[in-house]
Design a protein around this nucleic acid. Sequence first.
DNA 1: CGTTTGCTTGACTATCGTCAACTTTTGTGG
DNA 2: CCACAAAAGTTGACGATAGTCAAGCAAACG
Lengths: 222, 222
Amino acid sequence: MQVQAATQMSRFPAAALPLPPKAGAPVGTQMALRKGKELFAEGDEAEHFYKVVSGAIRSYKLLSDGRRQIDAFHLAGDIFGLEAGAEHRFSAEAVASALVIAYRRSRLPALIAEDSQFRDQVMSAMLRSLERAQDHMLLLGRKTAQEKVATFLLDMAERISDDDEHFDLPMLRNDIADHLGLTIETVSRTLNQFDRDGLIRLPAASRSVMLRNRAALERLNA
Amino acid sequence: MQVQAATQMSRFPAAALPLPPKAGAPVGTQMALRKGKELFAEGDEAEHFYKVVSGAIRSYKLLSDGRRQIDAFHLAGDIFGLEAGAEHRFSAEAVASALVIAYRRSRLPALIAEDSQFRDQVMSAMLRSLERAQDHMLLLGRKTAQEKVATFLLDMAERISDDDEHFDLPMLRNDIADHLGLTIETVSRTLNQFDRDGLIRLPAASRSVMLRNRAALERLNA
DNA sequence: CGTTTGCTTGACTATCGTCAACTTTTGTGG
DNA sequence: CCACAAAAGTTGACGATAGTCAAGCAAACG
């Protein structure tokens, strides 16, 4: 993947960032991504890591026959693409149009050593990823289809709801299915069942969702 | 959980450790754990984190009705129990007798700031956990029972085989099932099917395994 | 040596996946 | 802005994989 291939880019000084305080030095490169744009693929050299400014990114792994597991959706504020080794261990694409900042991986050791604030941010990003991963393993390994979808809805509500319990999902049914370890049909059936049962409202065929019975969803969240 | 409740403990100087080089200062507390001993439970205050010296630890989460997901088995050299917040996000127990070193969490920020070697070790431990978690999500969400068991066997072979393709599993069928998102019956059936098909050898009812057709297992590993 | 714990095996079932048709929505070009 | 095509989503019928329940066997443990 080439950062240079991005739709739009702009350099800007550290002052504009919540990140390191190197006065005036450019620390990251902002990129605007169109829907579906690939940031990097599994196996690519890990030249950069990223922070989401707006929009949504999916990171995923594939099996040789094409089965896909989306391990996370990254939303505004999330850091992703950090690697221990030289290669990316998963692929990443824009779910919908997104704005991200790319940081050169080669600068990571220096930044971490010198800048305690940056270090804390990276460490806690990693730990949060790990926590999410652990919660998600519980979901994938042990929850039923209904429980998976309920958990997903509550998680999304927490992350993107304008807190009247309404939000627009940035991803397709297909992405949801590949995130929850289900098929698109099961996701569709479960969501519509929830609608019929009054747990949520799916306004006519959009990607919008409204929680109508949070308590019932939380009961399914086990 | 009480570190003091451990079966045996001993303090020893840093020189004996591959960890920080603070000459002569005790940096960790070694603990001998009997099979089944709980190190900490989900929700406990995270006073310590740990490094496995020998044996095996399982870390897991529970649903309210008792369904369990073992997110990882920690073997010699692995670091676990690091948390972003004040509480442990999962429980940890000795799968079999084990020796671990406990480090006080309160010392973590200082150690990380001062000791670049320690910092690298912690960072790469976290990143390796994350990589393992990502691989495991792919397994849980998208692999069949056969593929799950094949992947598990190859992973264990890599981690504990005396490299004549033979090893003794430290964990019970039950643990394997809760790690792979299967039932104990399916694990048993799949292993015995592999035996019948000549992929592995299960010497009469022990916990020992011998790989007989690694290529076939790797094909299932997708 | 007997009891407990772990493992295996069989019969049956349920949940979720597959396949397929159809509807709705979105996007594009005239 | 309409018309059509493509993409996304829904629904139904059916089936397969893995789960449940149950019984029996083997190992380990005191």
